[in-house]
Design a protein around this nucleic acid. Structure first.
Length: 293
DNA sequence: AACTCGTGGGG
DNA sequence: TCCCCAAGAGT
């Protein structure tokens, strides 16, 4: 039996047509730049938090060149509290590269997309598929989970392996409407075949799911360590950057010192923000978002 | 290959 | 409350 038999295209596509969320970056009038921006914003970030930021962003900067003309600080402010603000700088750098090297046209070729900052294995194929309709496999955390269950009969995906994950997804792709099929796989993982408590009763491919057929066995592999946040450098960096997002003028270090009590960790994090280009120091020793002073 | 990098909602 | 985890990328 072929792998695709576990997730039949017609069944999944019908379900998608009936159930899919009406997300703005899925609309036919959405530009390739709009798709690219959405994919970067959606990296590790829930849809409902992305949507308003995405709308504001595209209204303000509808093209790569208009984004490239903004300062890094403006881009970081527009990014707001989406998280992982280095993504905003990479998106800005990608916009510059597209404007300068690609005539302001988002590339459609996966390898060209992969060469852009902040565009990895997932995002490059997502743009190629969703903006240009290419029949390339698109593998995100949802697809990995759906494939693990429906095809491999396992409760959860194993450790990511780009080569193996792409091969698995490639085997599923139908000849027709491959890009929509990929969007549907992701949607299934996002709405039904979710991580914690899958809604199998609502699943369109329940009849062919190997995990279901096997009696939905529990995850057997090693349990991955829970990611901490409180007290980490990530939290401290977030606090520091939030101070600078909230001010128009550069601030003295004493202002940043209020953001975290542990001086050693605070200074280490401020240094790493400077190294990452998320913070700049002015000539007179004040601190600000980059590119604004 | 394992770690780091933000943020906030829901179970 | 705490903990999981959400359309990953870069090193």
């Amino acid at each position: 039996m072929s792998a695709s038999a576990n997730i039949p295209a017609d069944t999944l596509l019908d379900w998608f047509a009936d159930t899919a969320r009406d997300l703005p970056w899925r609309r036919p009038e959405c530009t390739a730049w709009g798709v690219l921006v959405s994919e970067v914003m959606l990296q590790q970030t829930p849809v409902n938090r992305v949507e308003p930021i995405w709308r504001d962003w595209l209204e303000r900067w509808p093209t790569p060149s208009s984004t490239a003309a903004a300062t890094q600080g403006e881009v970081l402010r527009a990014w707001g509290k989406l998280g992982y603000p280095r993504r905003a700088l990479r998106l800005h750098a990608a916009a510059r590269a597209i404007a300068e090297d690609h005539d302001d046209v988002v590339p459609s070729d996966v390898d060209t997309l992969l060469a852009l900052p902040g565009i990895g294995a997932y995002t490059a194929r997502a743009v190629a598929a969703f903006a240009y309709g290419q029949a390339v496999p698109v593998v995100d955390t949802n697809v990995r989970r759906v494939v693990a269950r429906a095809v491999h009969g396992a409760a959860d995906a194993g450790p990511p392996s780009t080569t193996r994950d792409l091969r698995d997804a490639e085997a599923l792709l139908p000849r027709e409407r491959a890009a929509t099929y990929s969007a549907a796989l992701m949607e299934l993982g996002a709405l039904v075949c979710v991580a914690r408590t899958p809604r199998c009763a609502d699943c369109p491919v329940l009849a062919t799911c190997r995990w279901q057929r096997a009696g939905r066995p529990a995850h057997d592999g090693p349990v991955k360590a829970a990611q901490k946040f409180a007290g980490t450098d990530r939290q401290v960096r977030g606090r520091l950057l939030d101070v600078l997002r909230g001010t128009t003028e550069p601030v003295e270090k004493a202002v940043l010192d209020l953001a975290w009590s542990d001086a050693g960790q605070r200074d280490r994090c401020l240094h790493s923000l400077l190294v990452d280009g998320l913070v700049e120091q002015t000539r007179d020793g004040l601190f600000a978002l980059p590119g604004e002073h």
